[in-house]
């Protein structure tokens, strides 16, 4: 099964007493806040869940794997995420440890 934005909105509507439309809007706003911070180059850490980090990558020489043509890949920024130790432990509980 896959958890989607709609599922999260439904959970908020059911558990916190919001209309479905309001809950959807709240989820959108929450995601927009996180995205805006990351676009701004800021890290976002949610204790017990994980941490998103924006990393700078230098420009480098690459190759088009299909044509073998050499090209310069520009410097760019990427988002990485690292699980919190608490979450790691939780996903491993089903292994019986």
């Amino acid at each position: 099964m896959t958890l989607t934005k709609a599922d999260i909105a439904k959970k908020i509507a059911d558990d916190c007493g919001f209309m479905k439309g309001e809950a959807t809007e709240i989820v959108e706003k929450l995601l927009d806040i996180i995205k805006a911070r990351l676009i701004n180059g800021e890290d976002v850490m949610i204790s017990g869940f994980g941490k998103w980090t924006v990393k700078g990558k230098h420009s480098r020489r690459g190759r088009n794997p299909q044509t073998g043509e050499e090209l310069i890949l520009d410097a760019r920024r990427v988002v990485t995420w690292k699980y919190s130790p608490v979450l790691k432990k939780a996903v491993n509980t089903s292994l019986g440890k």
Binding site: M1, T2, L3, T4, K5, D7, I26, K35, F49, A90
Partner: peptide, 28 residues
Amino acid sequence: EIVNLVFDTMASALVSGDRIEIRGFGSL
């Protein structure tokens, strides 16, 4: 309450072995 619920819901999905897919943001 909402922020905790959102991340608890996401963590539970991962613990159950489910994927999370949030368009425009990312997947876990």
